[in-house]
């Protein structure tokens, strides 16, 4: 504990915290994106979309050893902790950086820094706002004006929201912003953790580029497919659904 306190007192330690929490959130994004590809696999024999089963699977994860929702809440708390630590660390760093140059240059020219790196704070702040809205929208269902929300109807909730262009387009923009954050962040974390070296650098850069574009592109498929009919859209009342089912077909708790 004392070691961690000392570590956090230095900027290298704060960056270490930002890198580890960034890596955890990046890992989550990979799983989240992969899980969402279930919207393209259709429905089970019971007429319930695979993605709805997947949602239920996450709720039941760890059963029967663990009661339902426990593993899910464990993961949620870990992610919440990561977001909080990441934000606290980067805010403290950014404060330190502002103090380090009280008088700025009249003429500025960048020789190497990428826009992704220069705008980490901007993309990060937008991501934070997005995380809050996204949870209110699809997890708790507190934003019915974006599309009617029924707990457990993962597929239809998405279909109802994303068939409206004014919901889909901001989501698409947000995914590109996340891509920028990852483009710099996923490379930068290796440098922060001291895992970078000249022999590996090109590989790590490539890794960051592939995953930044990959995560963004994969998530973009979702709103796009609902907008452009790859996946059937439903109207706001949830009529004309392709998958007619009732929630109790899913094992409920």
């Amino acid at each position: 504990m004392k070691r961690l306190k000392l570590l956090f007192a230095s900027s290298i330690g704060k960056k270490f915290v930002a890198a580890v929490t960034g890596l955890i959130m990046f890992g989550f994004l990979l799983g989240h994106a992969a899980g969402h590809m279930k919207i393209f696999t259709g429905a089970g024999a019971d007429g319930v979309p695979h993605i709805d089963h997947y949602g239920q699977f996450l709720k039941d994860f760890g059963a029967p050893a663990l009661p339902p929702m426990i593993a899910l809440w464990g993961a949620r708390l870990m992610l919440l902790g990561s977001v909080i630590l990441h934000v606290v660390a980067v805010l403290m760093l950014s404060d330190q950086n502002k103090k380090a140059r009280p008088v700025d240059y009249v003429k500025k020219k960048r020789a190497a820094a990428s826009p992704a790196a220069l705008y980490m704070m901007v993309t990060g702040t937008l991501i934070l706002a997005f995380i809050v809205l996204h949870i209110l929208h699809f997890t708790t269902g507190n934003l019915p004006m974006l599309g009617k929300h029924v707990h457990g109807e993962v597929y239809n909730n998405m279909a109802r929201s994303f068939s409206q262009w004014w919901v889909a387009i901001p989501y698409l923009i947000m995914m590109v912003i996340i891509g920028f954050h990852l483009y710099h962040g996923v490379w930068s974390l290796f440098q922060t953790l001291g895992l970078d070296n000249p022999d590996r650098n090109a590989l790590l850069r490539g890794f960051a580029i592939v995953f930044a574009i990959g995560v963004t592109a994969t998530f973009c498929l979702i709103p796009l497919s609902f907008m452009f009919g790859g996946e059937p859209a439903v109207d706001n009342e949830g009529m004309n659904r392709i998958y007619e089912y009732t929630h109790d077909k899913l094992s409920s708790h």
């Binding site: 140059r101 790196a117 001291g194």
Partner: peptide, 30 residues
């Protein structure tokens, strides 16, 4: 200030010192 791995220092260093040394120092520090 703190390092954000911009690599701006490496580009403007008159001796072309690589930021790989920063990664190395991070590793030693951790």
């Amino acid at each position: 200030g703190s390092c954000r791995n911009y690599a701006e220092c490496e580009a403007q260093c008159p001796k072309g010192i690589s930021i790989a040394f920063i990664g190395r120092m991070n590793s030693d520090y951790l």
